[in-house]
């Protein structure tokens, strides 16, 4: 029993930490897709977020903000990613570009633009490492609870708890406020929403910009907690995994959260399964591909059918039938 607990003490915090950027980014995807705009560009928005998080932190460090710098860096990243998402919004909402193609372009553009700027500023392919990282902490009092304290409240980043709180807020906003109702209406049946006086295009712009903000938060949290610097290889696939979490979670906040945590555990297991009794015989590749295989199965209806918002991937033209 002790051995199992020792394992869990390693795996559970590691899984939660890996899941945090995914959860935040999946919330971004939720706002965009609930408004009817597919967002394959989450990956690129996360890249922009990671870039903004690191560059912002370095900037605020040099201004003398000290330990506050990474938090300011995250805010900076949220801001520039929301603005960057406008590319996707303008192309896919106003210019009626194919939303998927526009998202693919966004991914290219984010990587090209950020690495280009990094090269111009730092004269090499990666940034300096930030000095004031957000470190793992124990939660006072709660971490003293036997077993549970060690599992959930020790050696973990504060950002993970904040992310969980944010998800609750997102759920409330999307399902319990007039704004959320309008957002979902626009994604399900834009013409009906338009008839009721909701500004479809504006709601979609808000949805896409929020997706930028949240994906920016996800990317920057990854950068200032786990990575510590930014290069072209900082974000590789987390954005797509967040998209997978969103789909696996059936486009709901808590579903996506559960999926993200599950994927986080798979990621944590893939790196530490070799040391664990009973698991070391399972090849690492199974843990690596698990999130993707499960997503495909979920879509095919083997793990409960995942139904996307009805007007997803359809540009809306006023007056069309």
């Amino acid at each position: 029993m002790d051995v199992v607990l020792q394992i869990l003490y390693i795996i559970v915090p590691a899984g939660l930490i890996a899941a945090t950027p995914l959860m935040l980014t999946a919330m971004g995807g939720l706002f965009s897709e609930r408004s009817g705009v597919v967002n394959i560009g989450l990956e690129g928005l996360m890249v922009m977020g990671a870039f903004g998080g690191i560059v912002g932190t370095l900037m605020f460090e040099s201004f003398g903000f000290g330990a506050l710098s990474p938090w300011m860096g995250i805010l900076f990243a949220v801001l520039i990613s929301a603005i960057f998402a406008l590319f996707h919004a303008v192309a896919s909402i106003s210019f009626r570009a194919d939303q998927i193609v526009s998202g693919v372009a966004l991914n290219f553009l984010a990587l090209g633009l950020t690495v280009f700027i990094v090269r111009e500023i730092f004269d090499r392919g990666q940034t300096d490492t930030i000095n004031t990282r957000i470190f793992r902490t124990n939660v006072p009092l709660l971490s003293d609870i036997p077993v549970i304290g060690d599992l959930f409240f020790s050696r973990i980043y504060v950002t993970s708890y904040i992310a969980l709180f944010i998800i609750a807020v997102v759920w409330y906003v999307v399902f319990k406020t007039p704004f959320g109702l309008r957002l979902r209406a626009v994604g399900e049946h834009p013409m009906a929403a338009d008839t009721m006086g909701i500004k479809v295009q504006r709601m979609r712009y808000i949805g896409v910009m929020l997706s930028g903000a949240f994906a920016g938060a996800g990317g920057s949290v990854y950068a200032v907690t786990i990575a510590g610097n930014f290069a072209s290889g900082t974000i590789v696939g987390q954005g797509f995994m967040a998209l997978a979490a969103l789909i696996f979670g059936k486009w709901t906040p808590f579903g996506a959260m559960g999926a993200a945590i599950f994927f986080g555990f798979a990621m944590a297991l893939s790196t530490s399964a070799q040391q664990l009794p009973g698991l070391q015989n399972i090849p690492q590749v199974f843990f690596l591909i698990l999130p993707y295989v499960l997503t495909i199965l979920a879509l095919a209806g083997f793990v409960g059918k995942a139904e996307p918002p009805k007007a997803l991937n359809q540009p809306y033209t006023k007056g069309s039938r």
């Binding site: 193609v101 526009s102 693919v104 372009a105 290219f108 553009l109 090209g112 280009f116 090269r119």
Partner: peptide, 11 residues
């Protein structure tokens, strides 16, 4: 990386 930016913008 400027080339990647140009390719993205073409798309």
């Amino acid at each position: 990386e400027l080339v990647e930016i140009i390719i993205a913008l073409i798309i």
